[in-house]
Simulated assay, not measured.
Amino acid sequence: MLMRYSKILLTAALGVLILLVAINNVTDYNTNYEVVSHVMSMDQVPTGSPLEWRAVTSVTLHRMFYAFIIAIEFSAAALILAGVWRLLLARKAQATQFNAAKDVATAGLALAVGLYLFGFMAVGGEWFQMWRSGPDMQQAAFRFIGCAALVMLFLGQRDD
């Protein structure tokens, strides 16, 4: 029973973390919007770089991209926390039922890993060369990937 409660607790903690990130991005919109705009504009890439053509300078596209990030964060948090509720309801059930209850939380965790791995590491980090833009946001993204992936692996272990 301790392992089930541990899985529920860690999954809930990550769901709350992602929810807080999304809420912060809405309530303190400009802080991270400026980072997204800065990265997408690629204004730290040296002039004459063969990668300059990737830059997106449209404010509308910056806002759309940032809104998409926030929507994915809220979606991931909602799935994770809904999954936690399902896990709580199944915590005393047979192993097959508890294992089946993991799917919604797992989907949310996968969405979170996908956002930070693809959105921040691949698109932001490599496509837009985010690593050239001052504070290394890839480090923060990697922390989210690590936490979410570890929780997903732990949750995914079959209960007997």
Rank of each mutant, 00 (worst) to 15 (best):
V35R: 01
L88W: 06
E34H: 07
L111Y: 03
N99K: 15
G48T: 03
E126T: 14
E52K: 06
I69C: 11
A95Q: 10
V45C: 04
V35E: 11
F68V: 13
L109C: 12
V104I: 15
G108M: 08
A93M: 12
L79W: 04
T57F: 05
L81G: 04
L109K: 12
Y66R: 10
T96N: 15
A122D: 08
W53G: 07
V123K: 12
Y116H: 13
L79P: 02
D103M: 13
L79S: 08
E52S: 13
A55C: 03
F118G: 07
R91G: 11
S41V: 02
G119V: 01
Q44I: 01
W85D: 09
L115G: 01
L81T: 01
N99R: 14
A82W: 09
W127H: 09
V104N: 07
L87R: 08
P50D: 13
A78Q: 10
F118C: 09
H62K: 14
V113R: 01
F120N: 02
V56M: 13
S49R: 04
Y66W: 12
Y66G: 06
E34S: 07
G125L: 06
Q97N: 14
M40R: 05
Q94K: 15
A107N: 10
L81W: 02
D43I: 09
S49G: 07
A77R: 04
G124Y: 08
N32A: 12
W127F: 13
T106K: 14
Q97T: 13
W127K: 05
W127T: 08
K92F: 11
L87Y: 02
S49M: 04
I69W: 08
N32C: 07
G108V: 07
I80F: 09
E52F: 03
V56P: 03
A100I: 00
H38P: 03
L81E: 04
A77T: 06
A101Q: 12
T47I: 02
G83Y: 00
E126G: 10
H38M: 11
G125E: 03
E52W: 02
S58W: 05
L115Y: 03
A105E: 05
D43L: 09
G119L: 00
R86K: 15
F98K: 10
F68D: 12
D43S: 13
A100K: 15
R63E: 04
A71S: 13
A55F: 02
L88A: 14
V45T: 02
P46Q: 07
L117C: 03
A55H: 00
V84N: 01
A78D: 14
A105K: 03
S58R: 11
G83M: 05
V104D: 02
V45P: 04
